[in-house]
Design a protein around this nucleic acid. Structure first.
Length: 491
RNA sequence: GGUCGCGUGGCCGAGGGGCUAGGCAGAGGUCUGCAAAACCUCGUACGGCGGUUCGAGUCCGUCCGCGACCUCCA
């Protein structure tokens, strides 16, 4: 199997990837909290891990990809459970809220053409496992109970294990943090965190436990579910950069605290999606929903963009870099995306009889680079650069600037397969924009229309040929005349 | 304030001691009934100032600017 290198947040280095069990990978990614519509930033993160998942599969690994749904346990600023808050707002039962937004999340993931994970466990479905983990942490002396709530004892933990390694946090500094959080007085140390919370009277989602009628701390679900489905030690743990601290840090502490072993060998973090140079934020209006992006119904964009254009735009940046979402950037991505798709269509139609070709080596080189770039921490921007190198050549081959007889049949076949795999299976872009209007009927009609236009042009009947082109243009169909034939595409 | 990261040509965005990233926009040319597309050529870009080095956009120091995290966050 080809060597794979990944940037490990834990070591802050790029490392050669070595699975625990040869040929198999366990990967856990922190999923969304389903209390409101999916945020575009979530989309970027899950899209990035989808491509990582797909490439691992492509390399031949058997991958168990676990991505949770958080439907309980997150505290808001005022100490209220996020699910309950959403419920009050919408006049719905908490589980109704969770279900509604889970469905919405799945729909959006489908729109962006991502695979479903292997397992998608819910926090509320694993309360027992979480209670057991709290007990294990208590048994190991890394937790304490206070008024029915249970806290993780960071100082006690630090006597035996390092804490703060992932996020570079120094616990002593957390002393200086004076926060006015609820139940702060129950904690022995500011860096301690709740693993079980006693529920207040008005709290809706609560369960029985040895300590109180309450609910699990929000870092606990991932510890419990990753352990349940991937084992105490697994290969990859992923999530957004903003989860590094406190969430991932505490997750590690809980896993070690409960079973004395570090959960994941490789921690991968996706970076933030910015807009206008700042992190998207609902509170200051610096945000756009995926749907607004598709329809163009937002002051931040001049028009609507196809989900695949949005995806292509995101893939032009590395997953570990921030990307600034701008209208100019999207416009540029849209043109590039169309150019790529056009070239892929042209490639399909290319044929050659040659047995050996002078250009083979060049194409082989680029295809090899694509593999290397993808294996180098999933460098999609470089892969896209490789694709455009090939796009120029495909167009050159069609336009006659390059001679197809210098390309062997076997190399051309391989090129078709490789590009198709990379573009449609690994990057998981879709060929056609605008949904389902590329029916057979449309194909047939366009074939007929362009045939009539071709005859008109042969007769130099420009009036007719231009009328056809202009009318089609008004219907958002672009006609481009090539040397021998004309091509059409939907705008 | 603490921790981490970033600052690349008009815009986006890779790379990360000597080797053309790429896309979009722009200029010139080829092709063409016109248009569009395509193809060819063109930009000596790496925040400022020092330092290391035969050589720095790439390493080190420093300053400036920006962002993320430190509190729910993908």
């Amino acid at each position: 199997m080809r060597d794979l290198f990944v940037y490990n947040s834990l070591s802050r280095k790029k490392e050669k990837f070595e699975p625990i069990t040869p040929g198999q990978i366990g990967m856990y990614v922190c999923g969304p909290t389903v209390y409101s519509d999916v945020h575009l930033g979530n989309v970027r993160t899950f899209m990035s891990f989808d491509i990582i998942y797909r490439y691992l599969l492509y390399l031949g690994y058997k991958v168990r990809y676990v991505r949770n749904i958080t439907d309980v346990g997150h505290l808001t600023d005022d100490g209220e459970d996020r699910m309950s808050k959403g419920a009050k707002k919408d006049q719905l039962e908490p589980m109704e809220v969770a279900h509604k937004y889970t469905v919405g999340f799945h729909d959006m993931m489908r729109i962006f053409n991502t695979h479903s994970p292997s397992i998608e466990p819910r926090a509320t479905g694993h309360i027992i496992e979480q209670i057991e983990m709290v007990q294990a942490i208590l048994d190991n002396g890394y937790g304490y109970e206070a008024n029915g709530s249970v806290y993780f004892d960071t100082l006690s933990f630090m006597k035996d294990h390092p804490y703060g390694q992932l996020s570079g946090r120094v616990v002593e500094e957390l002393f200086s943090e004076t926060r006015d959080l609820k139940n702060q007085n129950e904690k022995k140390h500011p860096s301690d965190f709740a693993i079980w919370m006693k529920a207040s009277e008005e709290h809706i989602m609560k369960w029985n436990s040895p300590w109180s009628l309450g609910f699990p701390g929000w870092h606990l679900e991932c510890s419990a579910m990753s352990t349940k489905y991937l084992g105490k030690n697994f290969d990859i743990h992923g999530g957004g950069n903003d989860l590094k601290f406190p969430h991932h840090e505490n997750e590690i502490a809980q896993n070690i605290g409960a079973c004395k072993c570090s959960p994941a060998n490789y921690w991968l973090h996706t970076n933030m999606l910015l807009m206008n140079g700042k992190k998207m934020s609902k509170s200051d209006g610096n945000t756009i929903t995926p749907v607004q992006l598709f329809t163009g119904d937002s002051p931040h964009v001049s028009k609507g963009y196809d989900p695949m254009v949005v995806k292509f735009f995101m893939l032009q940046a590395h997953y570990s870099s921030t990307i600034d979402l701008t209208d100019d950037g999207l416009l540029a991505a849209e043109k590039g995306y169309k150019k790529l798709m056009e070239a892929l269509k042209i490639l399909k139609g290319l044929q050659t009889q040659s047995q050996a070709g002078a250009m083979d080596a060049e194409f082989e080189r680029i295809m090899e680079e694509m593999h290397q770039n993808m294996s180098d921490d999933f460098n999609t921007p470089k892969v896209i650069a490789n694709l455009f190198e090939i796009v120029s050549k495909i167009n050159g081959l069609k336009g006659g600037q390059l001679d197809i007889s210098e390309l062997s049949d076997s190399c051309l076949t391989k090129l078709k397969e490789t590009l198709s795999t990379f573009v449609f299976e690994i990057l998981a872009l879709k060929e056609e924009l605008g949904g389902d209007n590329n029916s057979q009927t449309l194909d047939g009609l366009m074939g007929l229309i362009l045939d009539i236009r071709r005859k008109a042009r042969e007769e130099k009947n420009w009036e007719t040929s231009d009328k056809i082109r202009d009318t089609l243009s008004a219907l958002k169909i672009t006609v481009k005349d090539g040397k021998d034939d004309s091509q059409w595409s939907l705008n």
